[in-house]
Structures are given as C-alpha cells and as structure tokens.
Design a protein around this nucleic acid. Sequence first.
DNA 1: CCTCCACAGGAAGCGCAGGAGT
DNA 2: ACTCCTGCGCTTCCTGTGGAGG
Length: 412
Amino acid sequence: MDYVRDIFESALKSRVFRSREKLLPDYVPGFLPHREGEIRRVASILAPALRGEKPSNMFIYGLTGTGKTAVVRYVLSKLEASARESGSRVRGVYVNVRYRDTPYRVIADIGEAVGVRIPFTGLSVGEVFGRIVKKISDQGYIYIVVLDEIDFLVKKRGDDVLYKLTRINSELSSSRISLVGITNSVDLIESLDPRVKSSLGEVELVFPPYNAEQLRDILESRAKEAFNPGVLEDEIIPLCAALAAREHGDARRALDLLRVAGEIAERLGDVRVTRDHVMRAREEIERDRVADVVRTLPLHSKLVLASIIAVTGGGRGYATTGEVYDRYRGLTAKLGIETVTLRRVSGIIAELDMLGIISGRVVSRGRYGKTRVIELTADVNALVKALSEDITMGESVEEVWREALGKRGSMR
DNA sequence: CCTCCACAGGAAGCGCAGGAGT
DNA sequence: ACTCCTGCGCTTCCTGTGGAGG
C-alpha cells in the first residue's frame, strides 16, 4: 500500500507548481497587466454606487479571453471591499449565463445571490421575479448584477428577461439594480430590442484582444505565482503566448496551456516544463473539450455526428445536409431506432456547429440547391474515441457503430 | 431573365419529466 | 390529488433564397 501513500505525498508537495490554482480560469489575479485603462473605466462607472447612487448600466464587449470577466470581478471585489469599509450598501451579483442559459435559471441565480431560496423548477419566472423584488425592495442596497456571456441567453431565448431586468428598478422602493452585460459578439447588441439596447448600453466598453507580447506579460506574472522557480524553460512562455495569440489573443487559452503543460510534466515526474509538454497539452485540451461535448450530446445528435464522420470519410472531405440525413437514416434502420425529421437533423447540425465540433457554411449550388457544406473541425480520433466510449446500447449495436465510424479508432 | 432545387431556419406547439403551490 | 410551471427534444408547417441551367 506504500505506493498509494507515495501518490498522496507527492501530490502534497508538487515539484512543479507552487500554487496551481493561480492558473485556473476562475481565479481573479491581484494584478491584471494591460488592462489598467479598462479597470479605471469600469471602476469610475461603478463608483457612484458608494454614494448610494445607481451606476449606469454597462455593456462590455470583447472576444473570449480578453479579460472582461477578470476585470469586472476584480473591480467588483474592490468595490465591495470599499463599501464594507465605508458602510455603503453595495453588493455585486455575478451570474455566468453560459451554463444557465434560460430565463428561469438566470433569475433563479440572481435570487439565490440576493438570498431568496428558489427551487430548481416549479415556479413561474414571474413568481421568482416577484420574490426577488419583495426581498430586496426596501433594503436600500445598490445591486450590481453582472450577466456574463449574455449571448447564450439572448440567442436561445431572446431578450425578454433583459427587458424585465432593466425595468425592475421601477418596482423597487429603496434598492436599485444596475446591470453589467458581458458579451463576445457585437452583433448581439444590434439584435437586441431597442429599448433594452438603449437601457443596457448606457455605457459601452470594448476590450481589444491581447497580442503575443501582452500575453507574454500576463503569463509571466501568473507563472511567477503559480510555478516553482526555474521550472519553466525559457521558451515556454513565449510559445504558449504565440499559440494563443494565433487564436485571437485568448488569454484564457494561454493560461490553460501553461497549466496543463505543467500538469503533464508533473504526471511524468519531470521537474522542468518543456516544449514537448506544451504540445501534448494542446492535444489534451482539445481531446478533453471534444470528449466533454460529445458525452453530453443526446442520442440522435451522436448518431448525426457519426454520420457526418462517415460521410466526410473521417474528416477528409465534406458533407451536405442531405447526405448526412441519408446516412443517418441508414444508421437508425440498422439499429432499429426511430428517426427524427430532416428539420431536426438540420437543427442538430447547427448545434454541432455552435459547439465547435464541425463547421458548416451555407452555400448555394445553383441548380443543385442550397445546402450546408459541413466539415469536421475537431480531431477525428478524439471524436471517434468519445463516441465509442459512450455507447451504452448493447453488443449488437457496436458493430453497426463501428461500421458507421469506419475502421478508425480503437473499439473493443 | 426566370425557374426551381435543396435545403435554411423561423414559429408554434406537443408530450413528457421534474417539481412546485394549494 | 390536482393544477400549473419550466426545460427538452422533437414535429409540423412554413416562408425564404443564391445561383446553374434552361
């Protein structure tokens, strides 16, 4: 049993990391390089809250990994700290809409954050809304409600909730709510109801992407806290920065790379993080992402994905919606499963596109109609592996599955 | 210039599960 | 026990459309 203890002991004193959590996505660092200007802006907009005045609503736009979330959370925590010192009644509420992408859940989260107990389901949105209003109405507080990644909510369910939220203040007696919307796409702002747009967009802020040099500074400052001295080879940080810069300057990506590279080094028992570890990290991150996505897919989405893999010949060619549908029907026939309609498959394909597993462009082929040209963007081997691991339908099914996916990938 | 293909993608709504409130 | 709520995966019905071929 000694080896078990060894595992635990070596986990206790990592040779690579001093403090691994400083590289995790939701860690808010005490210092944000190249974002001083943005921090100032956000802080000065929210500052009136300390005097008991409602700050302007704010819209923040910027691509993923440009520090939007970090800046807002940073300023929010400082604001709350100042409020505590001065006895001001200010509270921040942060909701990431990405995984809570229905009106009900967003409202429920806000409710939880302000201290209303809200059941998982069973109440109407209006009811929950009413409870929140009742709870906070005469507290005399200024609430700063941050809705991160608003895109997911608006795209799927429209902007009703936003409209309701912007109007909530008229129902409150002494409390006030001020909204901060964070989004990745500018188009979103344009697609909003004009009333919401003008209300939420009282102030608009754009976060530009980082360039490789700035990413380097960010990694540098975090690595100092996260890694033991001398662990990183000199080329590591520039390499991670360069790889992430290629993906529109995504700092989050860069930090993930660095962390996973460190984890790999550690797992292998190496004391130094090398270029090779970074390259492996890149593959591992992609594999995990794909596996995560595929695992949570409903059955027919998996079947459609398998059909796409089959039609594209394992990602070498392209497929059209019609071809995929034919293949899909063949698959379900062999499995003895009911088929869904073309409309649904079209929708599933659009969903897979949004998940970043495939990419589809709508193309007109003249006489031969208009369709989506579908290509795989995720690694085929990762996809096949995730799909095969996931099959829980019994033995006979496996054969059909293997046939659909081709001979690639290790089944068994 | 018009047609008409092969779909895209919006809108409404259904049936079910999970879970209130009364 | 009964009613009403939401989310999810889905169907039905629908209108819209870029461009090769006539």
